[in-house]
């Protein structure tokens, strides 16, 4: 990962319930400092002069309590703790509740080149939002060559060799009312260690597709905003490959195969492609079947259970007739 600086934090494009509402109120040279850990610290103890195990790598959050204490220090003209605080290379100091730092604090920050940020949010809300944002940024990620579409609410990642027809299939799915998340290059992040979030690597390129014979098309303009999505959890991986007649493909679907991406196991389908096979419909049905499985109904297993029951009754019946 590239260095994630305070400036990057300020420029994060987060909306609605994710917005951090941050602005820089001082110490601008410090904006280039790197945020190394996705963690926070309330520097109450440090301000009172106790610096053992001080978490100087973390974002320092100043809420009402810390602010009130700073005012007390200001009144007493007690500079020591603040001076010592800024002797550390803090990533930045954030004041919540639109609070402003005291004069003395501001001067020290400017002097040491540590950026001062201010947020309109209250401390706990800010903490949870910034933690969410930072854990997303610090989560493991990788770029996967494939197409991510949302089919009946299921995020389907279509993978396969170049030229197997991933984009064409995605186009057909969009045409059938499903949504494109990203074409060609999908950035996959493991969020919270248990699910995968996929989005386009580049926000400008992600809703464009390259179709052989047509060139680059803009999906948003052609199909409307209803045909696109910014990000989506990956719930199914479909691997397309040229039909290989020497290979056996799953005919029953009793075993649920999964694929490991960034340590998360995702349901996985291997679908052979051959002229005349309507793959988009197969993907659609696969997605619906996945939803059915999530609801607790496993088509193949249920089918086999009823077949076994039926065979059992048939057998009992034939035994009965033999004995008459």
């Amino acid at each position: 990962m590239d260095k994630f600086t305070v400036l990057d934090l300020l420029q994060l494009d987060l909306k609605e319930h994710d917005a951090l509402d941050l602005k820089c109120i001082g110490g601008r040279p410090g904006l280039v400092r790197e945020i190394q850990v996705p963690e926070l610290n309330r520097p109450g103890l440090a301000l009172s002069g106790f610096f053992d195990s001080f978490a100087d790598k973390r974002l320092q959050i100043f809420g009402r309590g810390e602010h009130a204490y700073l005012q007390k220090l200001e009144k007493e003209s007690n500079h020591e703790a603040i001076k010592r605080l800024f002797s550390y290379n803090l990533p930045c100091c954030v004041f919540t509740n639109s609070l402003s730092p005291t004069h003395m604090f501001f001067e020290s920050a400017e002097e040491r080149g540590c950026s001062l940020l201010q947020s309109t949010l209250d401390s706990s809300e800010f903490s949870s939002r910034v933690m969410r944002a930072l854990s997303n940024i610090f989560s493991p990620k990788k770029n996967i060559h494939g197409v991510l579409v949302e089919v009946f609410g299921i995020g389907v990642l279509i993978m396969g060799e170049s030229g197997v027809g991933k984009s064409e299939m995605a186009l057909e799915l969009i045409e059938r009312g499903h949504r494109l998340v990203a074409d060609d290059s999908v950035e996959v992040r493991c969020v919270g260690g248990n699910f995968l979030m996929g989005k386009g690597v580049n926000i400008i390129a992600s809703h464009h597709m390259e179709i052989r014979g047509l060139g680059i098309i803009n999906v948003t303009h052609l199909f409307g905003v209803g045909a696109i999505r910014d990000k989506k959890q990956i719930q199914l991986v479909v691997q397309l490959e040229e039909w290989d007649s020497s290979k056996e493909y799953d005919r029953i679907g009793m075993e649920d195969s999964t694929i490991d991406i960034l340590g998360v196991n995702v349901p996985y389908l291997n679908i052979p492609v051959k002229p005349g096979r309507n793959i988009p419909i197969i993907i659609e049905t696969g997605a619906m079947n996945e939803r059915l499985k999530k609801l607790g109904y496993h088509s193949a297993k249920e089918f086999n259970r009823s077949i076994m029951n039926w065979l059992e009754t048939e057998r009992a019946r034939s035994l009965h007739f033999e004995n008459i």
Binding site: I307, L311, R315
Partner: peptide
Amino acid sequence: RAGIHARPAALLVQ
């Protein structure tokens, strides 16, 4: 014992 259910059928067809 189980007769020809899904798994044996798949094997047979293969």
